[in-house]
Design a protein around this nucleic acid. Structure first.
Length: 506
RNA sequence: GUCCCGUUAGCUCAGCUGGUAGAGCACGUCACUUUUAAUGAUGUGGCCGAUGGUUCGAAUCCAUCACGGGACACCA
């Protein structure tokens, strides 16, 4: 595995260090400050007459990113999680012989070292650490990628994310923001009185969304289980049970295509709120975004690729209305099945003639409206045919009390006043079953256990799901979901080998 | 699933209509005590993604496959 000559060379250096009594994998770190703290605390050094203070002694640690050996002195840039620091290493400040025989020969870029010394400012004005003592903590036997271009090959960046993180500071920043978004989301809902819950990841019936599930098998019970495609039906069972505000932040799994906005496992928050309607969800969503922007310290006008998104400009428009005002579809066709089909066909858009009116309106929306929604827009009043779990509008039973939030042409959230009429729910499931029989393999599965739960009475409730990955993409100006997932799904490089027998079996 | 593009040294990339492999960085050796991708000299480094084919001769042309990227379709 380590046949590469550069690796061999570095293994040899590690061995020489061992022979010299130096442990190349020492566990004895004496670090007492981080790079960031060192730079902050000593920012006054520049004001001092001789631009140094030999009485301040610090020990910092980090990976060597750059190394400039200039005879009897060297400059080393080390990096820890907090930042990059320049170290000045002079032969005569170190133990006799260490500089020439150890430092120059056997310590190199990629190694993790620890340095003790005092702060000073170089002739070129950079606050640095003057080394009095230096030791290696960890020998890197694989060389780092090129120091200037770093690593740009996307395949290597995703497969070896650790290298990407070592070489590309911006990547670390993206994942720090992701972590903050999740943490802030949790805090926001907790502060609102929501209870965080964990519901099953393995479902007997894959429900709560229209998607193909991953299937696994439970040996002890002798039954197949589905990795969940959504937590929705379990969270609603909890509302039936009497919890009035619950949320779950977790992974969903969908056995479908992969592209810039789809990974087989993705993270969402779903929350359910009793005695509220989708109108209340619009308000809390606006509040949530305000909270995020405030605590992430982001300007409310953010660039996204060539676009500019104004997060202060939330719009709200019913779906049918958006077809004409935003999509430019003539008003006289949007409620006529035959006219919609003709309209789509004229524009060479494939359309299944068996689709009902609601589905066709959905098609029109996807085709002519979605990508034009740049500033955050709540599209409301979805047709009942494409909203199997949403509550019907009392005023107009053809539509549901639902919205989807679109930002930068992408769906970010889906929410509705929940259907809590058990008989209506049963009918909708039956409708989905019929669709399944007609070949729609993503149609919703029948879940009689869930219908039974509703039959005990679920308080009027509003529920919402927000795609965390896509939200992070927006906030970090990333355009591939792989760039906001630490370890995105990748095909294996080689076929799996037969598992070898353990020695006990032989 | 379909189409397009890519795969050459550890990394970033050249390599034209076929004639047996190049640069920079990194690495080795030497010089250099305030550099900023340090510099100067010198050297090592490759099954040109895999397998077949065409050819006297293939990194280069053709076919198939693998992996990646992008677009489309489906979905969040």
């Amino acid at each position: 595995m380590f046949s590469n000559k550069f690796i061999q060379q570095r293994i040899e250096k590690a061995n020489i260090l061992r022979e010299a009594g130096i442990n190349p994998y020492s566990n004895e770190s004496q670090r007492n400050t981080t790079v960031e703290k060192f730079l902050n605390v000593n920012s006054d050094i520049e004001q001092k007459e001789d631009k140094r203070d030999e009485n301040r002694i610090y020990t910092v640690s980090g990976r060597i990113k750059l190394l400039r050996i200039m005879g009897k002195a060297s400059f080393v840039k080390i990096e820890d999680e907090s930042g990059m620091l320049q170290i000045y290493v002079a032969r005569d400040n170190l133990a006799e012989g260490f500089y020439n025989t150890i430092f120059k020969k056997h310590i190199e870029v990629g190694d993790i070292i620890e340095v003790t010394g005092y702060p000073f400012v170089t002739g070129k004005g950079e606050l640095s650490l003057h080394a009095n003592d230096l030791k290696i903590l960890t020998k890197a036997i694989s060389p780092l990628p090129e120091k200037f271009h770093g690593i740009t090959d996307k395949e290597i960046r995703y497969r070896k994310r650790y290298l990407d993180l070592i070489m590309n500071a911006g990547v670390r920043k993206t994942f720090q923001i992701r972590s903050k978004v999740i943490s802030l989301t949790r805090r926001f809902f907790e502060d609102k009185g929501f209870l965080e819950v964990e519901t099953p990841m393995m479902h007997p019936i894959a429900g709560g969304a229209n998607a193909k599930p991953f299937v696994t098998h439970h040996n002890a019970l002798g039954v197949d289980r589905y990795l969940r495609i959504a937590p929705e039906l379990y969270l609603k069972r909890l509302i039936v049970g009497g919890f009035e505000a619950v949320f779950e932040i977790n992974r969903n799994f969908r056995n479908e295509g992969m592209d810039a906005t789809h990974n087989p496992e993705f993270t969402s928050i779903e929350f359910y709120w009793a005695y509220k309607t989708y109108k209340d969800l619009i308000e809390i969503t606006k509040e949530y975004f305000q909270y995020l922007f405030e605590h992430l310290d982001l300007p409310t006008i953010l660039p996204y690729g060539d676009l500019e998104v104004n997060f202060d400009n939330f719009q709200e428009i019913p779906l049918i209305e958006s077809l004409t005002t935003i999509g430019g579809v003539p008003a006289d066709i949007v409620n006529d099945k035959e006219k919609i089909i003709a309209y789509l066909k004229e524009r060479h858009i494939d359309v299944n003639a068996a689709m009902n009116l609601g589905q066709l309106q959905g098609e029109l929306f996807d085709e002519f409206v979605e990508e034009k929604l740049i500033d955050p827009t709540f599209i409301t009043e979805y047709p009942v045919e494409i909203s199997p779990l949403a509550r019907r509008s009392d005023a107009n039973p053809a539509i549901t009390e639902r919205f989807e939030l679109f930002i930068a042409g992408r769906e970010i959230a889906n929410a509705f006043s929940e259907l809590n009429d058990p008989l209506d729910q049963l009918e909708r499931f039956e409708g989905q079953m019929a669709a399944k029989d007609c070949g729609d393999d993503e149609a919703h599965a029948m879940d009689t256990d869930f219908v039974e739960a509703l039959s005990y009475g679920m308080a009027p409730t509003a529920g919402q799901g927000i795609g965390i990955d896509r939200l992070v993409m927006l906030l970090t100006n990333e355009h591939s979901i792989r760039d906001v997932l630490l370890f995105p799904a990748m095909k294996p490089l080689t076929t799996e080998e037969e598992p070898c027998k353990s020695k006990e079996e032989e």
